[in-house]
Nucleic acid binder design. Sequence first.
DNA 1: TGCTGAGATGAATCTTGAA
DNA 2: TTTCAAGATTCATCTCAGC
Lengths: 372, 372
Amino acid sequence: MTTTKTAQGASALPLNTILEGDCIEAMNSLPSGSVDLIFADPPYNLQLKGDLHRPDNSKVDAVDDHWDQFSSFKAYDDFTHAWLKAARRLLKPDGALWVIGSYHNVFRMGTELQNQGFWILNDVVWRKSNPMPNFRGKRFTNAHETLIWCSKSEGAKYTFNYEALKSLNEGIQMRSDWVIPICNGGERLKDEHGDKAHPTQKPEALLHRILVGTTNPGDVVLDPFFGTGTTGAVAKMLGRDFIGIEREEAYRKVALKRLSKIRKFDKAALEVSTSKRAEPRVPFGQLVERGMLRPGEELYSVNGRHKAKVRADGTLIGSDSHGDVKGSIHQVGAHCEGAPSCNGWTYWCIKKDGKRVPIDLFRQQIRAEMRN
Amino acid sequence: MTTTKTAQGASALPLNTILEGDCIEAMNSLPSGSVDLIFADPPYNLQLKGDLHRPDNSKVDAVDDHWDQFSSFKAYDDFTHAWLKAARRLLKPDGALWVIGSYHNVFRMGTELQNQGFWILNDVVWRKSNPMPNFRGKRFTNAHETLIWCSKSEGAKYTFNYEALKSLNEGIQMRSDWVIPICNGGERLKDEHGDKAHPTQKPEALLHRILVGTTNPGDVVLDPFFGTGTTGAVAKMLGRDFIGIEREEAYRKVALKRLSKIRKFDKAALEVSTSKRAEPRVPFGQLVERGMLRPGEELYSVNGRHKAKVRADGTLIGSDSHGDVKGSIHQVGAHCEGAPSCNGWTYWCIKKDGKRVPIDLFRQQIRAEMRN
DNA sequence: TGCTGAGATGAATCTTGAA
DNA sequence: TTTCAAGATTCATCTCAGC
């Protein structure tokens, strides 16, 4: 799985591997201007005090790990300054950087980004459909986290796959607020005791949207706080190269196991669009982001006469006697039937236990979540 | 409409008026520790360059006012430091402050707030249901703004009307992301030419939620960047006193006209749901004294697993495999569950028609009597 | 196999008053 | 200033046992 690339004829990049040790030292060992995108999920510096119990007296398993402890804002600022400076050196001139944080740390990261000359393109809100409630009733439910997306400098030619994101959002341009569930269920990695392997594992849907939207296949994606490797897993699925850096042995171990099981989606699925309601509208792309459907998976028409393949940006590719057809679920459905229009939601089905089930079922699930 | 209040026997407050001039000088003329809440919507330092046209070639009326121009981040930081320092002096020890901003300025404000010792309680996302689209297709639609809510210091007893906000949200606790339309239609104030009177007028719904949630009737609310007076208008409706500060003559004029038309809601409408904590404390012994429960009567745990007997002094005696336990309803409940604490009122039940009914019901009866 | 209900849990700067 | 005890407080989702 390990491959290398030469950057500007100089040092080789340790692609698709996890580097050990401190992220600043590890970054300093890599060649300048060699990375297309950096995604960073640094410690949040939560400053929690005492335990928190739920009304039913169960104890909340909070983030109290040693790596999240800083002695002061000054110490956190010094840390932020150092790793962002190291990250900045690695970025190609037209590269971009994403960070994620909460109100504990995100303002300090944003300020430092601007001070170092990064150019903020958007702040993006990850709105959690199922956050932990506020047990004490003393504040608002902390239902979101904030991401900052920035280019290396003002005027840089960053990557933005506008049409692919628009397709993911069923034809409407993507907004700065994203509704995505927190990572749990089968996607949440467990350790040998059945406990969560990492306290803050990010959902793959989040990284899917970031990588489809702001990188191209073959790009190099660096994650200096790799954790259990969500960035690497999604990068691998999407045909991007990754470099992870992680200090903790336990996390590296889990990440390696996880990555070994990931398969890259097939080539057709990775091609994304480049050209041009009473119930809440649900973009078909969300089904892909959330893993309800996988890129490359086959859909069957409700009458059993046609097939089509899911692509990573939420479009389909179908084939019939006239050749290939690409487009939205509605467009490909209409083409298959030779009809002027078609409701792709009720037309396309997955096979489950030998029976065809319309994909509209997934839309109903998402709508149920949105009502909450 | 103008009234005054004496703060600590010293200077009078210019309540329900709009002060002219620079906000820092105006704040410095007011007495320390006299304000319950500050809402601030300072210049965003947008750094826009050139004109923007819609796909139909119409020109976007952007924020290009002289008051939004700063020469550098340093200049903006100095300005932020100065007005926040002046604002901090005015706040009562248990007062709170809200600021609103976009990614251009909100990170710098958040950093400065933390540096000055303000304690962030939440960041809140105003999700616009109808934002302006991104016409160039080069970024995500800027569909939100960020608010920061903070107390003057860690541990301060800020106001939070939890139950009122929960009621506003149909019985579910209020989250940190608020969906509110931008201000347009009849609410959007126009000048004599029919153009918008202010480029960034905030919706009244936003201030309504903030003032209902984090102030009480009669509180003093200061807005150092008053603009066309949304804060004052909503404060007046809700029976709060306001102090506005605005530099621009044109905005003051529009605000005065607006305020003259506002009527305060009637008293009954202003009463909000109170938290259960504010209810008078009822000792369990009163239930025994009043004969609602008899000494020797058996109580059952809400999950049906434990029993305990009422004693004449308002304590319980329970028994399990380890022997007898005596103590308050809370202590015995906690012991039965092996929990650090337990709310005995909702844990212990009597049997009525074969069903378990929490003893909290009796407490509610007593409280109802006390209100009469 | 499918349905139902109980139980578990997620980046959280989470109380208050008296002694 | 610190300690102790009373008492107030949860939403969406997933898993698993039981039928």
